[in-house]
Design a protein around this nucleic acid. Structure first.
Lengths: 196, 196
DNA sequence: CAATAAACTGAACGCTTGTTCATTTGCAAA
DNA sequence: TTTGCAAATGAACAAGCGTTCAGTTTATTG
């Protein structure tokens, strides 16, 4: 019989992903070598190839599972029915989720150009599906007469850019607690969609 | 006497900068080699070192002159006195300037981590000076009772993130003309600062 | 204990990297 | 036409790159 499957592999695999994510976020995909990742894991470079077919796929896996985690977390979130409550919930969710995974957010936004065309298309598809969720909320709000929005598509992109920008400057233990910051953003998002 | 200064250098120098900017934006600083830049310019790699002490400085120069161009362009812009008009003018200016230099914006936001600490500090200083201009507008508006803002610092960052995000998706000849897009953003920014 | 297979090593592969520098090119002034 | 120098070449440097693979280690199974 085979050895209990992956007694070490199950330890090493996430280590590889963690190290790669942290290093890619810090220095950029192209600037990080497989040897650096290996050193962080405590292993020789060749051993990494038991966990990824190549460097490019390692990057893609990180991005894809970031998006998958995003949808999974979102599904676990309460979905109110009235548009304004849903918008607020989206804002809160987006901020909380993204702040918990700054490295993954950074890598997912910065390293798109290092993906092969097919891998890029896959990530782009997932991202626009997520954007679609916000857009649907906006459309519902407009239909219900609660939002005043001239163009839902553009408003969606503007809101997401505004919210995600938070990840570039937020530091734990900063001037304001996260709850207050979130409340500020909820209010700004409301303002941007014309809620008075 | 010396030859007319830089008869060729004056041609080559901007070519080097243009090529570097385009390639850095497209593939990332670390992924671009000096030989690639040289080929784009039509020169051997060694010749680049007449125009930059090293690769890192080439990146820094691009970022610094992007920021300098930003301040120069802003100074040439009309500065109304009432806060709301100034806010609208800032929005319009920011969009127009940044859309004309997508590559420089991209590089300036993506490649900060590839700067040496001193060079990073310099770019950060210039950036926060620019943010300060918007923040001043917001504070004036609050003082004048036209804006309803809970925290001017955070609102500043949120607005700039929202506006700059435009550069990642805008394409000339897209669904909407730039004037309409700008008008949409002017309205959203107004909403975010609580103008009714 | 012996057998087995997963996990990992360590060296090697061909290639590219940023940077340097002695040398050549080519134009403009004298 | 000669001279002088900026501009550019092209070869070289040591170092590092992603990836492969035969071989060694190691822990668990029968």
């Amino acid at each position: 019989m085979a050895r209990k499957q992956g007694s070490h592999a199950e330890t090493t695999a996430p280590k590889v992903r963690d190290a790669a994510l942290r290093l890619f976020a810090r220095h950029g995909y192209a600037a990080v070598s497989m040897r650096q990742i290996a050193q962080e894991v405590g292993v020789q470079a060749g051993a990494l190839y038991r966990y990824t077919p190549d460097k490019q796929h390692l990057l893609f896996d990180l991005m894809r599972s970031h998006m998958e985690a995003l949808f999974e977390a979102r599904q676990a979130y309460a979905q109110p029915s009235d548009p304004l409550a849903r918008l607020d919930a989206f804002t809160t969710f987006h901020i909380r989720f993204h702040l918990q995974r700054v490295d993954a957010v950074f890598v997912s936004y910065m390293e798109l150009r290092n993906l092969s065309p097919e891998n890029f298309a896959e990530v782009a598809r997932l991202r626009s599906r997520y954007e679609g969720e916000l857009e649907a909320i906006l459309r519902d709000g407009v239909a219900a007469g609660v939002f005043e929005i001239a163009d839902c598509k553009i408003t969606t992109l503007a809101i997401i850019a505004m919210l995600t920008g938070l990840t570039t400057w937020y530091r734990e233990g900063g001037r304001l607690p996260l709850d207050e910051i979130t409340a500020l953003y909820v209010r700004m998002v409301r303002g941007a969609v014309g809620v008075v």
